[in-house]
Design a protein around this nucleic acid. Sequence first.
DNA 1: GTCTATATCGGGATAGAC
DNA 2: GTCTATCCCGATATAGAC
Lengths: 206, 206
Amino acid sequence: MQQDNRSARVKILAAAVQLFAEYGYHASSMREIARIAGIQAASIYYHYPSKQALLVEIMQVHMNQLNTNLERIIGKPHNFEQCLYDAFSNHIILHTTYKPEFFIIDTEIRALDPENRGRILCLRDQYEDLIQGLLQEGMEQGVISQTDVKIASYAIIAMCTEVAQWFRPGGRLTVQQVIEIYFQMITKGLLNLKDNAEIAEESAHI
Amino acid sequence: MQQDNRSARVKILAAAVQLFAEYGYHASSMREIARIAGIQAASIYYHYPSKQALLVEIMQVHMNQLNTNLERIIGKPHNFEQCLYDAFSNHIILHTTYKPEFFIIDTEIRALDPENRGRILCLRDQYEDLIQGLLQEGMEQGVISQTDVKIASYAIIAMCTEVAQWFRPGGRLTVQQVIEIYFQMITKGLLNLKDNAEIAEESAHI
DNA sequence: GTCTATATCGGGATAGAC
DNA sequence: GTCTATCCCGATATAGAC
């Protein structure tokens, strides 16, 4: 038997992440969080003022991480294609590495009280603005074709976020392979519907 | 003042949809559902055996509608491109028309007890299988390029589902225009990253 | 810093009158 | 078919000892 040397604060937050992700915020009790952390429910209140504070902490830490990384990627001098790759790579890596945390961010916004909700939604808007600015840059450079930046950003963010739902570390694909596939789908088309001329040409080559 | 002629069953379910979507299943009380439906909480139990039954009813009705429509679209003799269009058109139209209902389906699976969860997840798997079968058909016909069918289906479903989050009826775009944009993004690429030869060619044309 | 004990509240569901 | 009244439970959070 090894003892668990993590601080109580860390163990409490880890337990909250696990339960909020599996059962949802409202279905998770402070008693159960405490049980998993190995303490009594009342002891949580020495470290955190409320259950809501646990949720806010989880969301803030990881939204800040997502934004800070993206700011660093976009902020330095760059080649557009590489920058685009790094941006979505960051999104997919964080969402798969911290799957329960980002799942909570995506599903428990409504469990926040109005003040906290505003703060977290502001971080999400910042992230979307950064992504949209990057796409805008590519369009202005003529490196990507003209498109509705907002719609494209929402579509890409949605499909990259969803990766975390099915990705299994140690499975058929590594995360780097998944990133490569998604980058290809985003920049070269998901399905590549061929017109009749293309189909005829391909048949001729056989 | 007009009286509300809908049956009690309908009013109860509509109230449940509204509250489950806005606050989540566990954060919505039977008392509040009853208040919105204009009756007492105890009266709900004449129409539905439990709160869980309300959730199951909402999910089943709309997943069945989604599947039934798609089966009809795929089942009849068809041109592949048109069929693909109709399939995603069905997805986007239902998800925007019944936005709260599908939002509940997407976020409250974990609120179902194990037996009900299995039943609903089975309907979702059926839907994914139908979409994947369609993509497989297109690949075998050579109408779309070789791709990982599962990954492509997950990516496309995710981006089409997300439309409901930002789409506003009466806004800048009609739902038909949105469907057209998404069909283009899916079949012709979201961003269309150009290589250097293409950029040079475009410059030459100016 | 963690405990036991408890205050206080609101939840789902039921009984039985009308 | 809807009501009032209520049971019973588990929730968050606090008080105060150690």
